[in-house]
Amino acid sequence: MATLHTVNKSPFATGALLSCIAHAKDGDTVLMIEDGVYGASSGTNVSDALTARAGSVTLCVLGPDFAARGLATDRMLDGIKSVDYAGFVELAASNDRTQAWL
């Protein structure tokens, strides 16, 4: 009984990412998409909060959105998994529900 959470806003513009990881349950997946992918960079002011949940929540980023924004893969925060569009569909199908953090 797990949830796929999607976050599509930059964590530097809204509190959606932090609120999301504060409400996600162990075993859930958080997928950063669109401007949400800025949250997947290392060395930001949300990195520690994400790293703290990395053991209990699966953290993912939508690779095409990450690449589109010129973010270098070697700058991606440790513990974040990059998925492609097929991976996104797989996550939506394998979880019991999807919750969008707008």
Partner: peptide
Amino acid sequence: SRAEMADIMADQDVILSF
């Protein structure tokens, strides 16, 4: 509480976000 909110979210069939 926030923890109770997380439990409620995890107990749903459908979540509509606004």
